[in-house]
Structure formats: structure tokens, C-alpha cells
Design a binder for these strands. Structure first.
Lengths: 230, 230, 230, 230
DNA sequence: TATGAATGAGGCTTCATTCAT
DNA sequence: TATGAATGAAGCCTCATTCAT
């Protein structure tokens, strides 16, 4: 059985924004202090979104939580939507990078999937509010932000499918289950478990989290792996 | 390999309302014509919710779609919310009943799970708008209606878990994966696949649907079943 | 001191309606049963208006209280307003008739005023709901029904003023206070006392009511009567 | 007879708000400009309420009259109701303070009552719209705002009763008419007179107003004062 | 007479966003 | 940068009244 692996959790830094706007030209040059203020607002938004929900909360709630004036939020962000977009993309780009990194490694496919599951679970452990916001307000909010970010979300699926495909090519995984379908199931299982934690459907503690990593991979890969008896 | 089973899809008829209030006592006595109008409004709401989204659409859109006056919607429903609640509960209660029915059968656990997957997939085939609304606006809308109906949703999980538990007791399923976790993964996989269809992430045709039933069960049960090598 | 006089309280009968439409031509001929139903609705309206307020209650509340179907109210009345109008006019016409009757008597002015005060106070004792509705929803609702029925209300003032005028002519009352002003004060005092009872500002029992008749007349007439020292 | 006394009419200035919250602590710190805008909206509301009635007018009418945007009304007030509440309390608190001030003076009870009547009558002369709104929409609107502010209204009655009580104790007033009843009659007479002016039941000019002060006190006190002949 | 389904105008309130300072 | 006053579009819901049966 696979032993616990370091999940390589990295905090989304302010600089990670540049991933969106491209490496060459940030629209505006922000001073160090400005970057901090922006971060303060983003962090406040995470807490407010998690507590009250994106649609329910008011922009003034975010400003209050951040301890800044009402209009300042609009100094740093174009709209309320952009705040959530930013939070999502910051984190999701890191996830995609993590998956890509795993994909490029010379490891058994099962270990790659474990690393991905571990990364997501550890992300939740580190900042439950942020993961809750991303899942509840974006990933599972299929009718609003989920639709907007469908492309980005699909990227993650595709990259997971790529890992599965390589596993199939190497004979680690059976091929009668399509890689895309397997990716869907794998990510779906992870998200479902996190949703369970978020809404207290299932207990969430350190032990449960460690076990969940193994359970997810074992459940899905167990089914994906060819068996001796076949 | 499991052959296709009849999924026993039942359309929610007007009479099915009596499931909530008991067989003899609807809250209000409505004439036959009134029940029809109510149904017409509900069916119109499904189309509008699917097309425009619950939050985005206006009550007047529903009235227009149903071809009735604005106020009539409020003659039959207390609020816009109640319409969605009604649509969800109508269908979800049938789902729960179906799962319970499967649970009580003397069949292999895998076949029960197949029947459930088939029922849901066939439901989608029969009325994609309705299933889209239920998944997108309720089940996956964790921050709004999903929260409201958490109890009902949990019922379905619990009943699936019960089927798994019996499978574990009979030795069909391994026991080192908890029944609750397995249920989460199983239902999560189904929902993820339907979401994939709804948002055209994966192709959705008759063949894909039939295959999906098998894939879901095979993926999950493959992992749940004890293997010869253990 | 004036001893208690019989107040001659008369219940508003269904027939009294003809006072409004003129003696010759009721718009529709109503059967005995129809008259009863109309009365039932009116009586129900009194209770509902008293309990919930005219603006706040719905027409359906009246129908429910009367135990009749929704639309039947509109069979007997043109509008919700007409119900209140009817209730007010039924009673107010009797009041005016009573004042006129007193005016025509050969009695001391003070006794006439006492009789009027007694009539109103006894009316309240007999049917507090009705008097509450008339005062709260019409007489004191200056911005709505009070405005509509200003003419009728003014009639009562004028007739009271006439009594005062006769009292002044006979030397019972001093003349440096105008009759119109005295009438205003006299009726104002009565209404204020009833309002006090309605809203529990002052205790309302059999004794209080009897005493109030005397107090009102004594307070006002004491001031109206010429004094030995003048 | 009593000569006209200065009524000490004071306009509710923006600063007078501090009477509620204490001299130093307004609930929110508002800039000078903001206070002005708030005042502008309040003054506009008085005109609109007087012209159209509270229930009949729309919030947009107030905004239009004030020359501000619709939403700004809700920047300063929670609801349409709160605007009327504010107008009433602003003025009524001044009335109560005035009565209390009179109560504490070393004057004949009759002079105190005269000062109160004069204050109210002068208030009407100074700002008829405001007094109309307070009487028509609050004090006499027993079924809506009158009910809400019953406590405040009762305070005024109680304080007037206190003045009467002192008059009884000093022998100025007879004691067989209760102080509470006398207060009811006194205030009722004033309100009735103002209502007469508001609805043009009786002529309202400078002379009429001056005379009214005397008439009210004379009518009521004449009855309250013990007479030589008793 | 009697029923209750059907109609639809009307208004308060919310709150994201803009803008003057 | 920072503030918070100012803007105004948008929509749910109520409920008196009408009408088909």
C-alpha cells in the first residue's frame, strides 16, 4: 500500500496573479503596500464568502471584514465577481500546475493520483474557508461561476485523464474504462468527500483526512486496475 | 458482466404528491383542473429554470412559459423558492423510494447499485431539464437550496450506504472502505457524470448513457470488491 | 346633577340600509335569505376589521370569518371599501338621527348632551368591535375614510352645535364660546374617551362607562355654563 | 382673562436629534453635508405625506420632492416607515419636553395648560404640514402608527395629568374629575381643533388660532375649576 | 346564489457600482 | 490611495377584483 507522501502544499502568493495577466505586462504597477491591501481584501473576502455565501454577502461586508472603506474594494477590483474569480484562479492554477508536475514525473500512475488527492485534501486542511469557497461557489455552482470557469475546470480533468492514459499505456490501468470517465470519477470522488466535510455530512479530523487520501485512490484505482482473475 | 436492467423509471404524476401528505389527505383539496394548472406551471418552471437558471429567471418568465397570468403562480405556490422545492422533493422522494426498494430486494449488492445508477441515468434521459435543475440548482447548489435540503439528500446517501453495508456483510464487498465513504463516492460519480453531460464536458447519447451505467458501477465496485490477490 | 337616562340604544337593522339608497328604489330586490347572508358578511367584517384592521385584512379573511366563499363577498358588495362604508353609514345615520331626536326635545341642553354621550357610550358597551371600527377606521382615519365621510361626520357636529346654540339662546350656556367650537370639544372628548378604552389607555368597565357619561358632560358643560362670578 | 403668552416654539433642528441619543453620541457619525441631505429628505417627506398621505405616496415621490436619487432615501433611512417614525419622534419628544418644562414651573395650573395649548397651536401655525402629518398619520392613525407609538403618546397624556393633579392638590382644580380623564379631554380638544383646521371644518386664521388657545383652556378649565356656587 | 380560479397592476426594497472629494 | 455619499435598475410578492362555471 502507498505510504503517505508530502503533498507539497504551497500558499497562493500575491505574485501568482501574474499568471493571469501574462508574464510581461501587469496592467498597473502596484506598490508593496498596495499589494498587501489587495491581499487583505482577498483574505477578508474568503472569510465572508465562506460565512455568508457569495450571493448573499454584500460588498460592504467584505470591506467591513477587511477593515477598509467601501469604495476601496473597487479600487482594487473591477467587480464583486472579479474577487471570486481571482480567488478561484489563484488556487486553481496552482492545482493545475501540481497535476501537470505529477504528470511529468516518472512514477506509477497510482502514486500520481495519490499525490493529487493528497494535495487537495491538504489544501482543505490548510485553508478550509478557501477550499469551501472554491468548491461551493465555483466548482459546484454550475449555474453561475462554474459555467464561467468551465474551461479552467476542464483543464484539470484533462490533465488527470492524461495521467490515467499513461497508466493505461503502461498496463497499470485497464483500458476498457475511458480515461476521461475515470478522471471524472476520480475528481468527483474527491470533491464529494470535501463537500461532505464542508457540510458536516461526514466527520473531518486529521485522521479522517489522511485516511480519505488512501480511500479515494484505493476505491477508484482498485476498480481501474486490471485484476489477476480477468 | 451485468446486462442492462429495466430501470423502472416513473414520471412524477400529480398523484405522487400524496406521497408526502399520506394517501388520503392533500393539504388543500384541489379540483382536477386546478391540479392540471399546477402541473402546467411546474413543468414550465422546469424549462425556465433549466434555460435561464433559478436565480436569473423571473417569476414572470415562468408565468409566460406556462401561458398563465403572473398572479396565478402565487395562487398555487407561496414563493419562487417553493416551486423549486416542490420540483426537487417530488423527484427526490421517488429516488429515495427507488433506492429503498432496491435495498429490500434479494439481489447482489452490485446489481442494486446498478439499478440505482440506471434509474438516475434513465431519469436524465427521460427529462434532462428536470434532472439538470435538480442537480444544478439543488444538489450541487450547496450554498442555497442544497443546504436547505441537506437532510433529504443525506437520506439518499444513507440508504445507499445501507446497501453497501449489506454487501459487506455478505462478503460481496470488502470492509476496509467504510460504507458511508463508498456511498459518497458512488453517488458523487453519478452526479459528476450527469454534470458532464449537462455541460457538454463529455458526449451524451443513448450509447454513452447505457455505457455510463456500467462504467459507474464497474469503477466503484471494482474497487469495493475484494480481490483474489488480497 | 343629571340622573342616568335611558340611552335608547337601537341595533342597526338590515332595513336601515334603505336610508342610503333612498326610500323608493333599492338597486336590487334581495330575498330574505340574501339579506341574512349580507348581514352575516357585514358582521364578520366588523370582527375582522376590529381584529386585523381594515387595510391589513384581506377580503378572503372576511369571507373565511363569515364562512362563505371568496367571491360571494363581491356578490353583495362592490368593493372592500363599500363594506366599511356600509358599516359606518348604518351606524352613523342612527347617531345623527339620535342627535336630531334629542335636538327636537323640550329638555335642558345639558340633558340632551348627556343623552348623546350616553347613546355613544352605550353603543360601545353593546358592540365594542363596531364602535372601534367606526372610530379607528373611519372617524379617526382622517387620511382615508375620514376624508370620504367628512360630510356625514360634519353633520353630527352641526347638529350638536345646534343643541348648544339653543342652550345659548335659552341662557343655559354662555355665548362667548362659539357653538361650533363647543361641539368640536364635546364630540372630541367622547371620541378620546372611547379611544382610551379601545387601546386600554384607561380602564373600561360598567362603572367606568357610567361615570364617563357624567364626566364628559360635566367637564364640558361646566365650562360652557355661565358662572355666578362672571 | 389670560393674555397671549409666547409659546417658545422651537423648530426641530438637525442638532435636536441628539436629544434622543444623548448630547455626544449620534448612532452614526454623519458629515455636515450628510446631515443636511437627511434633513432635506425629511422635509420633503413632510410635504409629500401631507399632500398625498403616507400610505398613498411612493418612496419615489419623496425622492423626487427632495431632488435626490431613489436609493439615497434608503441610505439614510431603513424604510418608509422609519421616515415617519423619525418625523413623529423628533417633534413629539419636543412636545413632551415642553410639557415637562411647564410641569416644573411655579405657575397656576391653568397657565401651564395654556402654555401647552399655545405651543401646539403655534407649532401648527409654524409648520402646518408637519403637524398634519403627525396628527393624521400617527396620533389619529390608531390602527397603524398610532399603535406603534402608543407609549410615547401616553407619555404626553401622563404628563398633562400630572399638571392637573398638582392643580387639584393646590385647590385650583376640583378633584371629582380624575386627572387622567381631564388630560384625555384636554388633549382631545386640542387635537380635535387642529383636525378641524386641517380639514377645513372650521376657519383657520391668525385670529382663530389665538382665540382657540383661550377657548380650549377656558372650556376645559371652566369645568375643572371648582365654582363658588358648589 | 355560490364558488374559487384567474388576472395583473403596483411599490418597497436591495445592493452593485460610480463618483466627487 | 482612500472615503462613503449618491445612483438607479431590477424583481418579488400582495391582493383587490373579475369571471367562468
Amino acid at each position: 500500500m502507498s505510504e503517505a507522501k508530502p503533498s507539497g502544499y504551497r500558499r497562493p502568493e500575491a505574485e501568482s496573479r501574474s499568471q493571469d495577466a501574462g508574464p510581461e505586462a501587469p496592467r498597473r504597477t502596484l506598490s508593496k503596500a498596495a499589494i498587501d491591501k489587495r491581499r487583505i481584501i482577498l483574505d477578508a473576502a474568503v472569510r465572508v464568502f465562506a460565512r455568508q455565501g457569495f450571493r448573499t454577502c454584500r460588498v460592504s461586508d467584505i470591506a467591513d471584514e477587511a477593515g477598509v472603506a467601501y469604495g476601496l474594494v473597487y479600487h482594487y477590483f473591477t467587480s464583486k465577481d472579479e474577487i471570486l474569480d481571482t480567488l478561484f484562479l489563484e488556487r486553481w492554477n496552482i492545482l493545475i500546475a501540481t497535476i501537470a508536475e505529477q504528470d511529468s514525473r516518472a512514477l506509477p500512475a497510482r502514486d500520481k493520483l495519490y499525490a493529487i488527492a493528497a494535495f487537495i485534501v491538504d489544501s482543505y486542511a490548510h485553508d478550509p474557508d478557501l477550499m469551501q469557497v472554491i468548491i461551493v461557489e465555483v466548482t459546484r455552482a454550475a449555474n453561475t461561476f462554474g459555467r464561467t470557469h468551465l474551461g479552467k475546470i476542464r483543464e484539470a480533468y484533462a490533465q488527470i485523464a492524461e495521467i490515467v492514459r499513461k497508466g493505461q499505456a503502461s498496463g497499470e490501468f485497464r483500458s476498457d474504462i475511458t480515461a476521461e470517465f475515470a478522471a471524472l470519477t476520480f475528481y468527483g470522488a474527491i470533491e464529494q468527500v470535501l463537500t461532505g466535510w464542508i457540510f458536516s455530512l461526514v466527520p473531518a479530523g486529521d485522521d479522517e483526512r489522511e485516511q480519505a487520501k488512501w480511500l479515494i485512490v484505493e476505491t477508484v484505482c482498485g476498480g481501474l486496475e486490471p485484476r489477476a482473475s480477468d
